[in-house]
Design a protein around this nucleic acid. Structure first.
Length: 580
DNA sequence: GCCGTTTTCGGCCCGACTGTTTTCAGTCG
């Protein structure tokens, strides 16, 4: 067998373009040129389809947003040779390690460049030493305070810059918001930022507050920094304060007047690219958009509510989950925004584990919890025998469980328990339970729990072979990733989705906060291809059925509407969809 | 470097805070 060709990944290309941007910036290049490289890198890093494939098939890269002739040629060079000549060139006259200095907050390209030219500093170590020897304060434009700040910031740069799972961030945000709302001088408090957009991980919290007075009330910022969990105050002004909590989470608080609330919410919710696009539209209409409002000259024409700002820009209201500048602004201009799925649309759960395998509750307890959530059905999907660590069930145990479910269904009202299993896809693509048994289940959920490091080709083939089994219904956590813990295994997602469509199979958005797998881009890809998805809790305890809300958030970020989701259907209709 | 039913050239989002300055540059979001 021929050695597999090593394909340049989108991440590789994005890294090289980002490094170009960093080096050019230190070099004092045109800032818009620098931005163009960053923009292109962002586009590339977040697109699911491998650029290498596009190049191979001779597709036109300049069709991609932010990629023109020049960068397209560079991408082709990278794909073909694995290198970029111009990057080598830049590296030869600017020490590439210098970009390391940009990771230090308070050091940008200008200061990094000055420190290199004046003191010959190229690494964090040298920077630290220079600061300790008080040589930095002697450089023009620097002083003792900045030197101290740099010294402190080096520590931060050397630490792993952690992001929090959305669910973790929520646990930090909620009590803080409650604390702020408890103050009489505060009229309104909301969390904005990536948290509000429902991103799977959150780096910091952006909180917006409105006071009871017309002018910014400094007392609110003072109250904020007295929050008991505040470990360190980074900055404090009348309208803006930044602090780090004991958890390590950074929090930015902005205090705004009520007349600017909507504009400020838009501004602080982001994303950055969404905002830049909105501001461009404002300029085109002879208006100016800032966090204070939408202005024609000095006159504020909108700003109190988000709806008002969008409307004045000629746009339908765009829900935060969509604000990524991935076409939502164009859709809003044409009245074509999707009507996104909500938690209320969900009729039941398609994956949950009982104590029979690695869950903690009985089937009855799970059923009652599902009923309490207003569901019509819940599916018990205990693991199959191969997964020893999860006490996977053998065929006889699955049969016993099916009988138990029959007895429970006869007894319980207003909830239907569906018979399922989470069946291991073995290395050769066969399923871990016999066909006659699978044929008697209501729903067969299949997933990969072993041999994560097969090649992309092998992993894809393995899963497609599993889908060839006529009882295969839903591919669970299709990439196997665990946020912050485990990278996804390699698969050709587009091929998998097309294979699923051909065979009448489906995929899952797993709602566990550290999985959220499929991710938003893959979910959007599924919608585009016409593949319906399940949103499942994968609960291992009855209380965890509620994590399904995170999966809904991810689905919304993927533009999914109720009809794109399997479990917005009642059981009879779902049953028809599952038939192959 | 990208982009365009106003443009193939001349634009490219906007404001707060800090530290270093005597009016502003750099950084950040």
């Amino acid at each position: 067998m021929a050695a597999e060709r090593v394909q340049v990944t989108n991440a590789d290309i994005a890294d090289m373009l980002n490094e170009m941007a960093n080096l050019l910036e230190i070099d004092g290049a045109n800032p818009f040129r620098v931005r163009a490289y960053r923009q292109a890198a962002l586009t590339i890093a977040t697109m699911p389809r491998p650029l290498a494939d596009m190049v191979e098939q001779g597709e036109n890269l300049t069709d991609l947003p932010g990629i023109g002739e020049s960068i397209a040629a560079k991408i082709e060079e990278i794909v073909r040779t694995g290198k970029l000549d111009q990057l080598e060139e830049e590296r030869s006259h600017i020490p590439p390690q210098l970009t390391e200095l940009l990771r230090v907050p308070s050091l940008g390209p200008k200061r990094a460049s000055v420190l290199y030219k004046e003191l010959g500093i190229t690494s964090l170590e040298q920077l630290k030493q220079a600061a300790q020897e008080q040589r930095i304060r002697q450089v023009k434009g620097f002083g003792p305070k900045l030197e101290q700040t740099i010294l402190k910031d080096i520590e931060q740069a050397q630490q792993y810059q952690r992001r929090y799972l959305w669910a973790e961030a929520a646990q930090i945000a909620r009590p803080l918001v409650e604390y702020l709302r408890a103050n009489d001088r505060v009229k309104r408090v909301d969390v904005a930022g990536s948290y509000r957009r429902g991103l799977e991980t959150v780096g910091d919290l952006d909180i917006l507050a409105i006071g009871t007075t017309d002018t910014p009330d400094p007392a609110i910022g003072e109250y904020f920094v007295r929050y008991p969990s505040v470990k360190e105050v980074i900055s404090r002004g009348d309208t803006r304060s930044t602090a780090v909590l004991a958890s390590g989470m950074q929090v930015d608080l902005r205090v705004m007047p009520a007349e600017s609330y909507g504009a400020a919410m838009i501004y602080f919710t982001g994303s950055k690219t969404h905002n830049i696009h909105l501001r461009q539209i404002a300029l085109d209409k002879g208006l100016k958009l800032s966090e204070y409002g939408l202005f024609r000259g000095e006159e504020r024409v909108a700003g109190a509510t988000e709806q008002e700002v969008y409307r004045t820009l000629g746009l339908d209201y765009i829900t935060p989950e969509l604000r990524e500048d991935r076409g939502e602004i164009e859709a809003a201009a044409q009245g074509q925004l999707p009507h996104l799925v909500t938690l209320e649309d969900i009729r039941g759960d398609l994956q949950a584990h009982s104590k029979a395998s690695d869950g903690v509750n009985t089937i009855e307890e799970i059923a009652l919890a599902a009923r309490a959530l207003g569901y019509a059905y819940v599916t018990i999907t205990d693991h199959s025998r191969r997964l020893r660590v999860a006490r996977g069930l053998d065929p006889r145990q699955v049969r016993e469980q099916m009988n138990e479910i029959d007895r429970l269904n006869a007894r319980l009202e207003n909830i239907t328990i569906l018979k399922g299993a989470e069946v291991d896809i073995l290395k050769d693509g066969s399923l871990d339970l016999p066909d006659d048994l699978l044929g008697d289940l209501d729903i067969v959920v299949c997933s990969v729990h072993s041999s994560f490091n097969l090649s992309k080709e092998q992993q894809t083939e393995r899963i497609i072979r599993a889908m060839d089994n006529p009882h295969f219904n839903i591919l669970a956590h299709p990439t196997g990733r665990r946020l912050g813990e485990r990278q996804p295994y390699e698969v050709d997602m587009e091929r998998l989705m097309l294979a699923a469509l051909e065979r009448g199979c489906y995929m899952e958005i797993n709602s566990q906060p550290d999985r959220l797998d499929l991710n938003d881009k893959h979910a959007h890809m599924a919608k585009t291809l016409g593949l319906k998805l399940a949103i499942s809790s994968d609960a291992h305890r009855a209380d965890d059925l509620s994590v399904l809300q995170y999966g809904v958030m991810q689905a919304r970020r993927g533009w999914l509407e109720p009809e794109d989701v399997l479990n917005t259907r009642d059981w009879p209709e779902l049953q028809r969809l599952l038939r192959r």
